[in-house]
Design a protein around this nucleic acid. Structure first.
Length: 878
DNA sequence: AGCTTTGGCCAGTCCG
DNA sequence: CGGACTGGCCAA
């Protein structure tokens, strides 16, 4: 059985590489650019014309198709892609006319399998004097490289001997020698740095190497794709930098780097360290080798690279970065399956961007607005198992099983029809999509079973588990690929039928639960949250859905099969819904297994889980989450309904934001720049900062994560600075509190305690004083009052729910805030009360809603040392 | 150059 | 001020 580790096209041939213990064996075949045409579609004269054409190198019948071979992709494109081609003119479809010769060969040879590559990790360092952006383009000299092979484990590295082109050429030459007996190279963000740099520099130095021979796989990209599925906190999403991921994965401690230039990042002083020579040059190499080793350890921890290899084997793909794309995976898998059954798939069209943008979206899932007020208790949750695959299976959905049926009325014999989209499918023979899906699910089951039969923790056990996951991943990507206009299998009607059948099933379930007198409080896509039943009643409900409700409903649609199934997933003991897709909850049980005090809460959608939220916003949310549902273990004695505990946390965080020294990580926000800086209509803050950085020559390209600090959030557009410019002073504290930290927690608190007033903590920023007024001498130059409504948490709105007249808000004004040590207004009010008659003032105040009011308040107004002292004493005493 | 989907929330900018 | 719009990130 032929096994291949890699393959490529060169000089009119395909080269297929086989790894042997002694080296790599190459097998070559002529490169075939093939397109199929359905014989029945083809008028006789056109067939003769094609067969005789000088551009067509071969033409032969294969089943119902005419197989046309071309000498180059240019000839084939002219026939298959151009709207002016004779086939397009006749409205004749072509099939698989975009498939590249290597994929063609692998598709036509079902006996060929994919070999597991000999793998290594790579890291390089380049001259730091060249801006990263230019370095990527190959403008910086390579200073060093390191390669760590996995099996057998082996570390190699090398350093530039002299700052000359000759020395660099030798260094690069030794790199390609070092990887000569390896098949796959992984590097962190290798696709955008290490790989192109090595290739560009080697070309520039005229170093001989074979770039096609190796599989280049971007480890960061791979990690990101596989890690999306695993639930994380926002803290872990902060950065994709290698050392951050290493710390989060538990394979490295906090970064401990000491470069030649203190306070400067390692990457920014590679040149200086290399030039210093001796111990510094050694240290540069050590850090580089450590980074390389870190990648290997990350893999040891999560096994994503091994999983990717398994996916490649399952789909017949070579293990480079392209194998990470779901369209590629499914394409390779389905082409083979189709070929085995004598079926061909449509030629994939190459859209230009306009066409892609024009494509209409199809309708998606149903999401219910949450119906719980306050803290919800004892909520049962059912969810459909693999809902979208199940819908495809049940309705036998596939491009070639589609059948035109009346949208309403009786369903023709031998057909089923989706209930809401009215798309018909034959039930006579299984569709290809269904066959593929069944095959993947069968394999998944087989490997899960196999895993269960093996001793846990062994290599075989792990491998079986990975195979099981690989098949699940592939099966779950089906729906998305069918819904993608870039995919060969794009079919809007099918994609929409999948989602809308899901909507139909979910709403049917909601209705059935409500019929029993229970309350459905939330639902999203494939899950349904229900309040009212006992555990036993709800178990019976799920059983009834599976045995009666769905089978009967699907039968009426003409379905012969039924893969639809719901499961009683969990009971939640306490739930707080902020809005759709945003809630927190503690478990009563999960799949029947009772939760313990160690059980982590379920947290969805809120800032705590977002990588672009402010750190303090996440911290305050974490504390409040702990009080509300428990499990995070950041607050003592949680959970609790004692409001004063919440007040305390909020007040404490507010004084921290307003008064304490704030380190960078507490004031910065980081967001990804998803496109080129110039392509934005209204540049958002992170893009404006990116532009500032770019002007300094820093590397801020599409995809970069930009960290910034807001220095004035009260103007539009806001003023911002790059995070690296922050010295500890510039942050707009009011903005941080009013816009970043408090609102996310306020949303949680208002959801949990809707009758309590949470507004009082919201505002801290003094209103802008009109220049006219301040010129009148009431306020001294440079002084602005800090105005804030007093929090009055103690008299909570128990009797205050009726729409009575709103009480006027109380305000306290404190002058010269810069000289006050604190702004804890309850404290200030007390102080004020104990200083009657000092000096009355009438202030012109900005109230909420743009109103203004005159207010006379009695307090010490000179911002004197005396008040500062008084505050200190009061705090010490209380 | 190549690309898994839609639904939803929230922050920010611009404009009337 | 509010609404239209863009952009980022998350749930499923």
């Amino acid at each position: 059985m032929p096994e291949f580790v890699n393959g490529f096209v060169r000089g009119g041939s395909i080269h297929l590489l086989t790894r042997t213990p002694s080296g790599v064996q190459t097998t070559t075949y002529p490169a075939e650019y093939v397109a199929f045409v359905r014989h029945a579609d083809l008028p006789g004269d056109l067939e003769r014309h094609l067969s005789a054409s000088q551009f067509v190198s071969s033409a032969r019948r294969e089943g119902a198709f005419l197989r046309l071979g071309f000498r180059s992709h240019a000839f084939r494109d002219a026939l298959c892609q151009s709207p002016k081609s004779p086939l397009a003119q006749h409205g004749i479809a072509t099939y698989e006319g975009d498939v590249d010769p290597v994929r063609r060969w692998l598709t036509d040879h079902p006996e060929a399998t994919i070999q597991r590559p000999r793998r290594c990790w790579l890291d390089i360092e380049t001259d730091s004097r060249v801006p990263a952006k230019r370095a990527k383009e190959g403008a910086a000299r390579v200073l060093s490289w390191s390669v760590i092979a996995d099996d057998p484990r082996r570390v190699r590295f090398d350093v530039l001997k002299a700052d000359t082109d000759t020395a660099e050429a030798e260094l690069l030459g030794r790199f390609w020698e070092a990887v000569a007996d390896l098949d796959q190279v992984l590097a962190w963000f290798g696709d955008i740095f290490d790989f192109p740099v090595l290739k560009l520099r080697s070309k520039a130095r005229r170093v001989r190497f074979d770039e096609d021979r190796l599989l280049f796989l971007d480890h960061a990209e791979l990690f990101e794709r596989h890690n999306k599925n695993s639930s994380q906190s926002g803290e872990e999403k902060q950065s994709m930098a290698l050392q951050n991921i290493a710390v989060a994965s538990g394979v490295a401690g906090k970064l401990d780097e000491e470069g030649l230039i203190p306070g400067k990042a390692m990457g920014a002083q590679t040149w200086e360290m290399w030039e210093a020579g001796g111990e510094w040059r050694d240290r540069l190499v050590r850090y580089m080798v450590r980074d390389t080793e870190t990648m290997r350890r990350i893999e040891g921890k999560n096994g994503y690279v091994a999983l990717q290899s398994t996916i490649c084997e399952a789909c017949t793909l070579f293990g480079d970065s392209r194998s990470l794309k779901p369209t590629r995976q499914l394409d390779a898998f389905m082409l083979r399956l189709g070929a085995a059954r004598g079926q061909r798939f449509p030629t994939r069209r190459f859209f230009d961007e306009d066409v892609a943008d024009q494509h209409d979206q199809f309708k998606g899932a149903y999401v219910m607005d949450p119906k719980v007020r306050g803290i919800g208790k004892d909520i049962h949750v059912v969810d459909f198992s693999r809902m979208y695959p199940a819908n495809i299976l049940t309705f036998n959905m596939s491009a070639e099983t589609k059948k035109l049926v009346p949208v309403t009325g009786p369903i023709p014999e031998g057909c089923c029809r989706t209930p809401t989209t009215g798309v018909g499918f034959t039930t006579a023979e299984p569709g290809l999509l269904v066959v593929a899906l069944k095959e993947l699910l069968r394999l998944r089951k087989e490997w899960s079973k196999k895993q269960a039969s093996l001793p846990p923790g062994t290599t075989d056990w792990e491998d079986a588990g990975r195979r099981s996951v690989a098949y699940k991943v592939a099966a779950n990507s089906f729906y998305g690929v069918v819904g993608s206009p870039f995919s060969r299998f794009f079919d809007r009607a099918i994609a929409e039928s999948v989602t809308q059948t899901g909507v139909w099933l979910l709403k049917m379930t909601i209705h059935a639960a409500e019929e029993r007198g229970w309350k459905v409080v939330y639902a999203d896509t494939d899950s349904c949250f229900v309040q009212g039943p006992t555990d036993e009643e709800f178990t019976a409900f799920a059983k009834h859905c599976n045995e009666v409700l769905y089978p009967e409903a699907l039968k009426k649609c003409g379905c012969v099969e039924n893969a639809v199934e719901i499961a009683y997933e969990k009971k939640l003991s306490r739930v707080v819904f902020v809005s759709a897709k945003r809630y927190i909850a503690s478990y009563a049980h999960y799949k029947g297994k009772a939760a313990t005090s160690d059980s982590k809460p379920e947290i969805k959608g809120i800032e705590y889980k977002r990588g672009d939220a402010n750190k303090l916003a996440r911290r305050l949310q974490a504390q409040v989450i702990d009080l509300l549902v428990g499990g995070l273990k950041v607050v003592e004695g949680a959970p609790s309904d004692d409001l004063s505990r919440y007040h305390e946390l909020v007040s404490k965080m507010r004084s921290h934001v307003l008064d304490d020294a704030l380190p960078l990580d507490e004031v910065q926000i980081a967001q990804k720049m998803t496109k080129d800086a110039g392509d934005y209509k209204n540049a958002p803050p992170h893009v404006r900062v990116a532009k500032m950085l770019a002007e300094r020559g820093e590397d801020v390209q599409e995809g970069a994560r930009i960290a910034y600090v807001v220095t004035d959030g009260s103007v539009s557009p806001m003023t911002v600075i790059p995070a690296i410019d922050y010295t500890g002073q510039e942050a707009d504290r009011h903005y941080i509190w009013e816009d970043k930290v408090f609102p996310p927690t306020r949303a949680l608190l208002e959801a949990a305690f809707p009758d309590e007033p949470w507004e009082p903590w919201a505002k801290t920023r003094p209103p802008k004083v009109r220049s006219k007024k301040s010129a009148e001498g009431q306020l001294e130059l440079g002084q602005q009052p800090t105005l804030s409504p007093l929090p009055k948490p103690s008299e909570s709105a128990v009797g205050d729910r009726s729409p009575t007249v709103k009480k006027p808000k109380e305000f306290v004004a404190v002058l010269d805030q810069s000289r006050l040590p604190g702004r804890d207004l309850t404290v200030v009010r007390d102080i004020v009360a104990r200083h009657p008659g000092d000096r009355p003032l009438v202030l012109d105040l900005g109230l909420e809603g743009g109103r203004r009011a005159k207010m006379s308040t009695i307090f010490t107004c000179d911002g004197s040392e005396a008040l500062a002292e008084e505050l200190k004493r009061f705090r010490a005493a209380s």
